[in-house]
Design a protein around this nucleic acid. Structure first.
Lengths: 182, 182
DNA sequence: CCAATATGAGACATCAATGTCTCATATGAG
DNA sequence: CTCATATGAGACATTGATGTCTCATATTGG
C-alpha cells in the first residue's frame, strides 16, 4: 500500500530524461500511481525536480565513494569513477539540461561538494605529474560532466553502443583522440 | 520600421540560452519588439524554436566551411573548426538542451548533414593515421558536441575563462588529460 | 473482524502562457 | 503631402497543466 518513494523517483527520472516536458500526469502513470498520490508525495513539480536533483547528487557521491577517488593513481581513479557513474549518467543528463535549477539563487551545496571532490581528483593528478597542468582542474571537471552527458545521450539515441560507455569516456578524457606515437 | 528577423532571432537566442523557459513576452521584450509583432514573424513558440534550430545549423555549417575541414591534417582541421564554432557555441548549448526537438518524428536533415561532415573529418583523420581507431568517429563527434556545450556553459557561469575556449576543447579532445611522456 | 490509513478516480477552480483581434500611431514610399 | 503598411499596446478567449478536494475502495495493523 505504502508508495515506495524511491521507486517513484526512479520512474520519474526514467521518463523525464527521455521527455523532459512530461506532464505530472504522465509521470504519475509512469510510476504506476495516481496523480493525487504523486502530489501527496511531492508538493508540486518543483519539489519533484528538487528531489531528483538530490537523488542525482546522492548517486554521484555514492559513486565517488565506491570509486575511492582519493586512492592510488589519479588516472585509475578516474576510470573507476566513470565506471561507477554509469548508472547515474541518464539522470545526470536530465539534470544537466535543467539549467533553470541554477538560475536565481544559490547553487545547490550538494553540487558544490561534488565539484570540489572531482576538482580535487584532477588537481591531485596534476600534482603527481600524471595530468597535464595546462588544463585547469575545473575545466577537466566540466569536461567530464559534458562527456558523461554526451555519452548517455548518444547511447539513448542508439548512436553508440552501451558497452562502450566507460571506455569511450575514459579513453577520450585521459588519452585524447590523437594517435600515440608508436 | 521593418523588423530585422535575423536580429530578433539573435536576441531570442541570447535570452533563451540563459533562461530556456522564457515567455514569448520576455522574448519579445528582449528583442525590443511587441508580442504581436513577434507572433507576426514566428507563428508560435514552436516556429521560433525551429527557426533558432535552422540558425544554429546554418552557423555550424558556415563555421565548418570557413574552417575548410576537408583540407590538411585532421588535427589542424579540428582546431580550426572549434575556433570557428566558438561564436555559435551558446546557441548550440541551448539547442542541445532542447531534446524535445528530436522526439517524435525524423531528425532534422540539417543536423544529419552536419553530423556527416564531422564524422567524415574524424574518419579522415583515422585513415591518415592521425587519430586512434579504437574510438568511433561517431563518438568523437558526439564528444565534440558535448565539450562545446560544456565549455559554453562553464564560461557563461564564470567557471572558466572565455579566452580558453578553443584551447580547452581542442587540447582535451585531441590530446587528453594525461601528461605526455617527456 | 474492525479500525485506521493510504490510494485511485474524478471533479473542480486556478493560473499562466498563448494566439488572435482591434485600433491608434508611426514609418516609409511615391 | 498622402497613402499604404508595419508596429505597439492592450483586451480577449482558449488552452493545458496544475493543485486541491471529495468519496469510494483497498490495504494494513491490531
Amino acid at each position: 500500500m505504502a508508495v515506495d518513494r524511491e521507486q517513484v523517483l526512479r520512474a520519474a527520472a526514467s521518463l523525464l530524461m527521455r521527455k523532459s516536458t512530461a506532464t505530472m500526469d504522465e509521470v504519475a502513470r509512469a510510476a504506476g500511481i495516481s496523480r493525487a498520490t504523486l502530489n501527496r508525495q511531492f508538493a508540486g513539480r518543483d519539489a519533484l525536480i528538487r528531489a531528483l536533483e538530490e537523488l542525482g547528487i546522492a548517486e554521484c557521491e555514492a559513486a565517488a565513494t565506491r570509486a575511492v577517488v582519493d586512492d592510488g593513481p589519479a588516472p585509475d581513479a578516474v576510470r573507476r569513477l566513470v565506471r561507477e557513474l554509469e548508472p547515474a549518467a541518464g539522470l545526470l543528463a536530465f539534470l544537466y539540461s535543467e539549467n533553470q535549477l541554477f538560475e536565481g539563487d544559490e547553487q545547490n551545496k550538494g553540487w558544490a561538494r561534488l565539484d570540489a571532490r572531482m576538482v580535487g581528483l584532477f588537481r591531485r593528478g596534476q600534482e603527481a605529474g600524471e595530468f597535464r597542468i595546462d588544463l585547469s582542474p575545473v575545466w577537466l571537471t566540466e569536461a567530464l560532466y559534458g562527456l558523461l552527458v554526451s555519452a548517455a545521450w548518444a547511447i539513448s539515441e542508439g548512436r553508440v553502443a552501451p558497452n562502450d560507455f566507460t571506455t569511450n569516456i575514459t579513453e577520450l578524457l585521459l588519452g585524447g583522440a590523437t594517435r600515440r606515437q608508436v
